[in-house]
Amino acid sequence: MPHSIADAISVSWYGWWTDRDGDRTDLTALLTGWDYASRTTVGISIDLDEEALLASTGLDSVDDLEILAVADCRATGQRFIATKPLRGHQRGSTVDVSVQLPPGQVAGTVQLSAHLVLARTTSEQEYRVAFLRGSRIDSSAPFTLRLEGDSGRFPTEPVAFSELGLENAPWTIMTAYEELSDSFLGGVRLLINLEHPVGRLTLDNKAASRVSGVLHSDVIRLLVANVAARSEDVDESSNEEGSVGQVLETMCEAYLGMSLRTAARLYRDDPVRFDRILQDRLDPFAGVTA
């Protein structure tokens, strides 16, 4: 940052809450009871240590600051904000800031964040003291709120493969993304073959555990293979929340203990070793011996 930011101890961001008819409850990852007609208010509370804040930023007064609550919806391509000026802020009091998710304007997931920023542009200040409106002084950790139930699950489509002209495999992956920055939910599908006995097994709650390990490792292998087959290298810096790149990056780190870039290279250069690592880490046949 070209300007000094708040010392970590000077701003405390609490958890996000939702307010329904004056009833405030803590937000969980999935917003229940939501639909396109819902008007939802979400908010966050903040405590400031004013002295530490001013000392670390070089600012004269917290009156010059405001707090922004941001609801960033990648699916609808729109950000919603609300501001809370700190002019007249009472030292030691907790600040609440809330933002509305307007009906019909958000979908899938929204990323919630809150930011302490400069509220107005002033004349130039001392060296490295923020003076331009919007200068970021501190930010909360982002919180991903799922609105639609499916957005937390792997996008799956049970279908008769013969109807699509596909070979009689129990499952397969279908991808329609062009770049890793594209939406994972929009660009990737796990197709389960309703005509295959093993495919049907995965949809049977009582029996699915027998094949879930194999399915799991197969999905990861197919997704990495798909990335490896693309000529371009993986750009790890441009993966937004919910993008193909971000989801696969998370999967590779969690299940293979390596980055997507490393996994794709390994698959390309030494697919046999890739498979050994995959089987070692995921134990896909555990259901067979159980």
Binding site: Y36, C73, T76, Q78, G104, Q105, V106
Partner: peptide, 10 residues
């Protein structure tokens, strides 16, 4: 179209 519906590829 409801913009939230227009957010879906399908």
């Amino acid at each position: 179209i409801v913009p939230a519906d227009a957010a879906h590829d399908e």
